[in-house]
């Protein structure tokens, strides 16, 4: 079997004053679209910096296509493209110059793909990079990353700073264009706290919270397990103590709302025996699953 695109084993990183990562592990298989979900400060960017050899792990190991980024930095960087959450360009360059400059570092560059993305995103190649909005800067960086057609695309908060209305459309276009030429082989590792627009795109994800992986699952499995059950009763509602397996219990008038992680079916069966007036079950969205998994605290 080929090496995983990314493998992170027991990764710890300590900054001067605090530890940002405490034993994080995850594996990304080639071809996956992998979500790395966490609040600001959860350790996402620190992890990515370790992958790129911008930081040396305090403990543990990171491998990209089986290679150690600290020892084979050039080989690792040739196979991936990284788009940070804040992108800087040389101020004297136009969009065109900037793409040519990026292309000069690459052994491969797809001009047709570059042109079609510039058109789709309506980015004028003659614009000076100093005149670009935050969203346009991200677009330019992403076009550069994708035109190089790397085996692995690493995105750090690609949609933050974009208009919520265009975020979803935009990320669909970008990831779709990247996967098009070789579906099933192009790997995406995307770190984000804005999960809604990735709902249909993510194959598998890890939720990182306070430097630890608190949940790793495929999107389908997670949606199959994390479910919301609503039961309406005409008489008195059942007691909370009857639902020990529920992650959360809410009462709203005659309605009982339970969130479960697994055991949804057995709970449904039990509720049916209590004679509810209505009974419904639905899966949580990835965003809701994320919010249920991280420790309560500041909103993401």
């Amino acid at each position: 079997m080929s090496s995983p695109a990314i493998s992170i084993d027991d990764l710890a990183y300590r900054y001067d004053r605090s530890e940002a990562l405490h034993g994080l592990s995850l594996t990304v298989q080639p071809g996956e679209c992998y979500g790395f979900f966490g609040r600001t400060g959860a350790g996402k960017t620190t992890t990515i910096k370790c992958l790129l050899n911008l930081l040396r792990p305090t403990r543990g190991a990171v491998r990209v296509f089986g290679m150690d980024p600290a020892r084979q930095e050039a080989e690792v960087k040739a196979r991936l493209a990284y788009v940070p959450d804040f992108v800087a360009f040389y101020p004297w360059m136009s969009v065109r110059d900037s793409l040519d400059y990026q292309a000069s570092f690459r052994s491969h560059w797809n001009r047709d793909l570059e042109r079609s993305l510039l058109e789709q995103l309506q980015l004028d190649p003659n614009l000076p990079t100093t005149g670009l909005s935050k969203g346009q800067r991200t677009q330019l960086a992403l076009i550069g990353a994708i035109a190089a057609e790397p085996d692995l695309l690493v995105l750090d908060e690609p949609t933050s700073g974009l208009d919520p209305l265009v975020r979803r459309e935009f990320i669909q276009t970008i990831i779709g264009a990247y996967q098009d030429a070789a579906p099933g082989q192009r790997t995406v590792f995307v770190s984000t706290h804005l999960i809604t627009e990735f709902e249909g795109l993510i194959d598998r994800f890890t939720v990182v919270d306070q430097g630890r992986a608190v949940l790793t699952a495929t999107a389908d499995d997670a949606r199959g397990r994390f479910r919301r059950i609503r039961a309406e009763f005409e008489g008195a509602l059942p007691e909370d103590s009857e639902f020990r397996q529920a992650r959360s219990i809410r009462r709203r008038g005659r309605t009982l709302e339970l969130v479960v992680n697994g055991e949804g079916e057995s709970l449904m069966e039990y509720l049916r025996t209590r004679g509810p007036a209505s009974l419904e079950i639905e899966s949580l969205t990835l965003e809701e699953i994320f919010l249920h998994t991280v420790q309560p605290g500041t909103t993401p």
Partner: peptide, 17 residues
């Protein structure tokens, strides 16, 4: 096509494939 359906449903190409 995989591409058309993925774009229409706003899902990953891998899923349609």
């Amino acid at each position: 096509s995989v591409r058309t359906l993925a774009e229409e449903l706003r899902i990953n190409r891998n899923t349609v494939a």
